[in-house]
């Protein structure tokens, strides 16, 4: 780790000012990607601005039937929230399955989304549940938020304030963990709202994506038999020492089938 300065922001505007006044700033929102890369000397920010100290940024509320989760809500807080459990149990389960206990008590939903790790769980939740990402300057629909590996629609200094999850009828998240890292080798968030099916897949490609062919088939007929002949192209999927693209494509379909079974059981 190189030397750096730590700033504890007390409000959003302070954080922004600090960011824009620093040479190579980085926001820290839990730090479970940033700190390991700093320890390995792969990243060397001059100034680290802690957002977790901003009051109220971790609130979880229900407004109408929209679940609003503050960006600094930790995975543990989301997992344990009775509001989240009632409104969207799949989201609480997903949060409870991220990393290990230590990670869940530090890592935050806003940090995870802003980082857009290709194998993180939350991007699948945001995209699959059709969330709105509310920042200090605008609201970004999840369908346009995730751009590429570790890339989002956020401006360099832009800060996520909250994530708004609309009510869905049904949702389930299934993760096939990488045996070593326990990140998602493939993770599938499958949701239904007024007969429409949305499927977001993480872990399999450079960034989270929607499985359009499966969505179409399941929106028409929500049953395992409806997707018997549907396949996912392996062409754009990841190959690494743990899984080939072909195997990942297969796993995606298996998890979608299991998701459909779970929601129709």
């Amino acid at each position: 780790m190189y030397q750096f300065k730590v700033h504890k922001a007390d409000k959003l505007s302070t954080a922004l000012d600090l960011f824009n006044a620093s040479d190579e700033p980085a926001y820290i929102a839990g730090g479970h990607t940033l700190i390991p890369t700093m320890k390995q000397r792969l990243s060397a920010p001059s100034d680290v601005i802690d957002l977790a100290t901003i009051p109220g940024l971790d609130a979880i509320t229900l407004v109408g039937d929209t679940l609003q989760i503050g960006a600094m809500a930790t995975h543990a807080k989301v997992a344990a929230s009775s509001l989240v459990q009632e409104h969207c149990a799949a989201l609480a389960n997903l949060a409870g399955g991220i990393g290990d206990r230590q990670v869940r008590y530090r890592g935050t939903i806003g940090g995870s989304l802003a980082n857009n790790d290709p194998a993180a769980d939350y991007p699948a939740a945001a995209l699959g549940l059709g969330a709105q990402i509310v920042t200090d300057r605008r609201t970004i629909p999840s369908d346009t938020f995730f751009k590429a590996m570790f890339e989002t629609a956020l401006e360099p200094d832009e800060i996520i304030q909250a994530i708004h999850f609309p009510q869905v009828d049904q949702a389930v998240y299934l993760k096939f963990p990488n045996p070593a890292s326990r990140y998602a080798m493939v993770g599938v968030m499958l949701t239904r709202t007024a007969g429409e099916t949305r499927i977001a897949i993480t872990g399999a490609a450079a960034s989270v994506f929607r499985a359009a062919t499966f969505e179409t088939a399941l929106t028409a007929d929500f049953s395992v038999s409806a997707i018997e002949a549907v396949t996912l192209s392996a062409e754009t999927l990841n190959t690494d020492m743990h899984a080939s693209a072909e195997y990942r494509a297969h796993l995606c379909k298996v998890l979608i089938q299991r998701g459909v079974e779970a929601l129709t059981a």
Partner: peptide, 21 residues
Amino acid sequence: LEQAVYDDTGQLITGSYMDYC
């Protein structure tokens, strides 16, 4: 679970617990 993997140039693919299981 466990295996040490080098690529063809002798770089260690399993250089951390992210990949060494």
